[in-house]
Design a protein around this nucleic acid. Structure first.
Lengths: 210, 210
DNA sequence: ATTCATTGACTATCGAGTTAGTCAATTTTG
DNA sequence: CAAAATTGACTAACTCGATAGTCAATGAAT
């Protein structure tokens, strides 16, 4: 029977260890993290980690993969759902992104780890990009292209680089990573300012009174 | 006499060690960097490092401080020099930023180290911000405010958050940090698309033919 | 002769990975 | 059903290579 105490423990342990590993890796970085501390945080001993994971590298890679999965799924879900004018779409999309950035420390911290360890784990960066980055960018690009074809937005050069449109949101992530809570940002205002810039630009619109 | 071989060596050693430290820290991150390797790269032995620097932490902090100084000075110099309409200023300023990002690996790699080690060295992040980040942002903000007062640009919310305007450039830095040369970007086109977005936005301009 | 930048051998510690052993949960047997 | 046998998640104590930091000795420059 798979209903025993053993089966349940075996099913839950890896996740518990992964969560503990996430917290330690985020605090200390890959190299400075001690597997003993991960074990202590998960309420086991170091040997148990090696029962479930081959090596420290393997633990790290698996952790990034598993903990970024829900974020990835949430994003794809949003893109699949949303309709409306391009203008509405851009606003809703950025709003969604800001919700993730501001509320989900996982997203930010995974980003930190990928940036910090990009040299040591290039394959992990690429894998993450192929699974999350590229498809989402491509999806956004397509939506914008359609909007341009319908004449709802200009066919600007930034349509080829969705990163440009999302850039200010990434900026906020980096600020939050650098300063934690030492430099609080009014995310709501920042978000509105971002949407306004992306839609209207800095130059005065015709007939607009500044 | 200050013209002896000793004096020259003593004057140059710290810089040589700092440069070697930069390269090793960038490749391996703070914790994984071995002082023996730094020494070897600088052409000395480990003891010599301890003759000039108290500890590994001290070496790291000094390195970030010293190697970010020229970037900082270059930026301040640019801001002090430049005049012209706000529109021209924005273009020139972004152009300058992109030159730094694209050509100066120091800038990007310092950013990587600050993000990676923000938890371990919060004071270093704050110091760096006070010396480089805040003044430059404030300077940019003022220029834009003046432009808005003169009616050259809209008084948009993003004027209060210059990070929003620079965000896409930071985006490019992060992309370059993550992918090194595995995902080359056409910086010239990216730059033009960025300037266009910031000035014109996505929505069609009155009387414009898409 | 003296100074002092530099060396390199040293210590002390740390931490990844290993392994023999434990004991509760399960399965088998009488 | 109860006792015995087996399993397997988990532990504790280990190895061993590595590395931050120290310091007495060196030898070139003055």
């Amino acid at each position: 029977m798979a209903e025993g105490v053993r089966a349940r423990r075996k099913a839950e342990r890896p996740g518990e260890i992964l969560q503990a590993a996430f917290e330690e890796f985020v605090d200390r970085g890959y190299a400075a993290t001690r597997l003993e501390d991960v074990a202590a945080r998960a309420g086991v001993t170091k040997g148990t980690i090696y029962f479930y994971f081959e090596t420290k590298e393997n633990l790290f890679v698996t952790m990034v993969r598993e903990l970024s999965r829900p974020i990835h799924e949430e994003m794809e879900g949003f893109l699949a759902d949303h309709n409306g004018t391009t203008r509405e779409f851009v606003r809703a999309y950025l709003g969604f992104i800001y919700k993730v950035i501001a509320e989900d420390a996982h997203f930010r911290e995974i980003l930190r780890l990928l940036i910090a360890e990009a040299h040591r784990f290039p394959a992990l960066v690429d894998e993450h990009d192929e699974r999350c980055g590229t498809p989402i960018m491509e999806h956004l690009r397509q939506r914008l292209e359609e909007g341009a074809n319908r004449g709802e937005i200009r066919s600007a050069g930034s349509l080829d680089y969705p990163q440009i449109i999302l850039g200010p949101a990434l900026s906020l992530s980096v600020i939050m990573l650098l300063f934690s809570d030492r430099k609080p940002v009014d995310v709501e205002r920042y978000f509105e300012a971002h949407v306004d810039l992306v839609l209207n630009g800095l130059l005065p619109r015709n007939g607009e009174v500044s």
